[in-house]
Design a protein around this nucleic acid. Structure first.
Length: 221
DNA sequence: CCTGCGATATTCT
DNA sequence: GAATATCGCAGGC
């Protein structure tokens, strides 16, 4: 059964120019933000998904507003027990339970008493691995993002270039945790245009103390 | 441009 | 009781 297509608000284009082919890897790409990436995209290793998410488009339809942004920064957190920075490192808890779902679900957690962070769960059910989305470039619903951020003079590129800023700008909160990106009407990821290798940088992850040396952060150059 | 620090509450020890 | 997958502001270059 086809997904209901949300109404597009005035002044907020819901689609991008179509492209027949991805310039870099010959994968057919539709740039329609309502086309969702399938389950198979997410059921791979978190590091593979983290790299492949760059250039894809995160979309939310929350409080009657569609917002979308090009994913420009990600981090992988593994569930194999070797990643001490992963929330799942010491096994299941009430908080981290969504991270053990099959790839394609979401995991939203509250941090520093103030912010939410948005993760894409990856791999097979029970693994406990995910990709933290650390930044998007605003693309659709930019004025809605600006209202949510409530900083009048902020440049577009600064509206969602951080994990806490991203969730504020896109209206993501705890209600969006544990939902399925391949089904849910409020949040999904569309194919966008994957970034070529020469447009991608890799570094250690940010803001952690345990397993801090592992090079599992990917970002657009 | 850079560095330091306070706010804030849930989670886990 | 300590730590935390952050942010924005203040102050010094």
């Amino acid at each position: 059964m086809a997904q209901t297509r949300p109404d597009i608000l005035p002044g907020q284009p819901g689609t991008l120019p179509k492209q027949m082919m991805n310039q870099h890897n010959s994968t057919p790409v539709s740039a329609d933000i309502h086309d969702r990436l399938p389950r198979s995209f997410f059921t791979r290793d978190a590091r593979e998904v983290a790299r492949d998410l760059l250039g894809r488009i995160l979309v939310t339809h929350i409080d009657g507003v569609i917002t979308g942004g090009v994913i420009i920064e990600t981090e992988a957190y593994l569930g194999d027990g070797g990643d001490e920075a992963a929330h799942t490192h010491r096994g299941p808890t009430p908080r981290n339970r969504p991270m053990f779902l099959i790839g394609g679900h979401t995991y939203v957690y509250f941090i520093y008493g103030m912010y939410h962070c948005f993760n894409v769960v990856t791999g097979i059910e029970g693994n406990g691995e995910a990709v933290l989305l650390r930044g998007v470039e605003p693309l659709v619903g930019i004025e809605a993002m600006r209202r949510r951020r409530a900083r009048a003079t902020e440049r577009d590129i600064d509206l969602a270039n951080g994990p806490g800023k991203l969730t504020i700008a896109m209206g993501i909160g705890p209600a969006i945790s544990g939902v399925d990106l391949t089904i849910d009407k409020r949040v999904w990821i569309s194919a966008g245009t994957p970034l070529a290798d020469d447009a991608v940088a890799v570094t250690p992850r940010i803001g952690i103390t345990k397993s801090a040396h592992l090079p599992w952060r990917w970002l657009r150059r």
